[in-house]
């Protein structure tokens, strides 16, 4: 029980990286598709881009880690960025968001920024969901956006490390980019690893021989918190897929769950019974945008879904932390989505 204290410590976000540390095998396997692979294409946004944010701060442990792309050569990466700048967005301001705790790229980026006046470096807390576009824009540029809005309409382009290198390869060197790195992890796999997949490969081919033989499993794309579940494994690999998480389906009762916090992480079990809201204030403490999710639950339970929009419902970024932390196991994110859909 005492070990749990780090898990309970949260305020405006949740430090997933320290709570569920994942290690990836550093041998990168390449998987090719059987058909003709799709090709990455960079489309220059129609709007004038005033700010470019490069997100080097993945906050989910199952997301693709920085070292895969940067390969400990951060300066070379930033040189590529500079070339993209001169070619496409010469007038835009450049901001790099980087994890405070990652020492090596942090030092390298700051060292580089000393001579380069065109870019600014922001060392941010690696709390989930710091890298969400809405929060990133607020923290880095001080601009308010709505959840789900395309940031290019406000003149902001958000790039991750892999997209920067792909743009460089494709547009500067003229090479065809038809594959990308993804992170494979989860309790349903034999081993956490990073693979280089050609676009268009089916998920079934990626996961073949990697899933543990025994037991049921479920597949999630872009993380189990705000990603989606894949039931049809014949789906093709796309550029937007950053990671695949395969979780063990734990649909049986476990003895003494209170002593097994370290074993029970990353399973699909609810880990508790559905109860009523007990005003524990976990959800509004963890909410990264300062909402009170239980108010939506109360409106919903009274049958007044339309009243939920009175309580800043539109500010919700659907990160899923309120449902994740709720000790009564209320489906808060589901309720929020239903109220938003009205």
């Amino acid at each position: 029980m005492l070990k749990e204290k780090e898990n309970i410590g949260f305020k405006g976000g949740f430090n997933l990286l320290d709570t569920y540390p994942l290690r990836f095998c550093n041998i990168i396997e390449r998987i090719s598709s059987d058909g003709i692979p799709e090709v990455f294409e960079f489309r220059v946004p129609a709007q004038k881009i005033q700010h470019v944010i490069v997100n080097l701060c993945p906050t989910e442990p199952w997301a693709l880690p920085n070292w895969v792309i940067l390969e400990h050569k951060t300066a070379a990466f930033l040189n590529k960025l500079k070339e993209i700048k001169t070619r496409y967005f010469p007038e835009a301001s450049y901001s790099i968001a980087i994890n405070k705790k990652e020492d090596e790229p942090n030092a390298a980026v700051k060292n580089y920024a000393g001579d380069a006046e065109w870019m600014k470096v922001f060392a941010v807390d690696a709390k989930y969901p710091q890298d969400d576009p809405v929060i990133l824009l607020k923290v880095v540029l001080g601009i308010e956006t709505n959840f789900g809005q395309d940031t290019t309409t406000q003149g902001v382009l958000i790039l991750d490390a892999q997209t920067v290198t792909a743009i460089y390869e494709n547009c500067m060197l003229g090479n065809k980019v038809d594959s990308r790195f993804i992170a494979l992890s989860g309790t349903g796999l034999k081993e956490n690893e990073i693979i280089n997949v050609q676009l268009g490969t089916s998920l079934e081919k990626i996961l073949r021989n990697r899933i543990k033989e025994s037991g049921k499993y479920r597949v999630f794309v872009n993380g189990p918190l705000h990603g989606r579940e894949i039931t049809d494994l014949s789906q093709k690999m796309e550029w937007s897929i950053n990671n695949i998480v395969v979780l063990e389906e734990l649909d049986q009762k476990v003895m003494f769950p209170m002593f097994k916090s370290d074993e029970l992480v990353l399973t699909t079990n609810m880990l508790g019974e559905l109860r009523r809201c007990v005003y524990c204030n976990f959800c509004d403490d963890i909410c990264p945008v300062g909402l009170e999710p239980a108010l939506y639950y109360h409106s919903y339970k009274r049958g007044e879904k339309h009243k939920a929009s009175l309580y800043n419902l539109e500010k919700c970024i659907e990160c899923g932390l309120c449902s994740f932390i709720c000790p009564s196991k209320l489906e808060l994110l589901h309720i929020i989505k239903e109220c938003k859909a009205l």
Binding site: F220, L247, L266, T267, L271, E273, G320, I325, P327
Partner: peptide
């Protein structure tokens, strides 16, 4: 969503 939950009830 979310598909994982905290072990605290």
């Amino acid at each position: 969503q979310p598909f994982i939950r905290n072990n605290y009830d």
